[in-house]
Amino acid sequence: MIALILRDLRLAFRAGGGFGLALAFFLIVVVLVPFGVGPETGRLSGIAPGILWLGALLACLLSLDRVFQLDWEDGSLELLATSALPLETLAFAKAIAHWLTTGLPLVVAAPLLGVMLNLPGPAYPWLAASLAVGTPGLSAIGTFGAALTVGIKRGGLLLSLLVLPLYVPSLIFGAMTATRAAEALDPLPPLALLAGLSLAAAAAMPFAAAGALRVNLR
């Protein structure tokens, strides 16, 4: 399983592997927001937590169709499926690899981008914490969506339609954590709920993803 994660990481870092693409997308979304809503710092700092969370979520979504697609096209997914490794473990490993290549860089980059949006001071640690806790859940849910759509040509659009509604609870709790911190309220309850959600997703989603993969590999 660890070998699988390392393999995925190596593939991602290789040229054309798509690592950094999500990060660049995140940066662009955040840069575009002030053009849309105007440069007043007061307004920007009010919506900064929501924008940062939304940007991270979309960046996460962008790289999801790569999770299984490449392995599916060159047939290595079928090889992996026939190996001794259970498909559930495979899905879990894929989710971890996706998080390491997409979620983790987003967590690191978010506070830097927060400066550009004039995020209020006390919100920084909570924003980073909420992303660190929430993005693994996004990766786990997204892996399920990728497993559902792996056999479909041009499944990327369908993937977004399926996965985005599933992201609603994570987005609500995640953005609320940062917003409450910015408004000097207690940010712990939404963070705890977000953590619960991510843990539940990480525990349950590999089984759903493996079920979908089994159907698609039939």
């Binding site: 399920f144 399926l162 609870p169 709790f173 609320m176 959600l197 989603m205 759903a208 079920g211 159907v215």
Partner: peptide, 28 residues
């Protein structure tokens, strides 16, 4: 048959998330 299976999985997962969303929204 694959469509039936995949939509079944989607329906199950969707149902769970629909309930979670309902309560998340109350919180929101």
């Amino acid at each position: 048959d694959a469509a039936a299976d995949l939509t079944t999985v989607l329906c199950l997962v969707g149902s769970v998330f629909a309930v979670i969303s309902r309560y998340a929204l109350l919180f929101w």
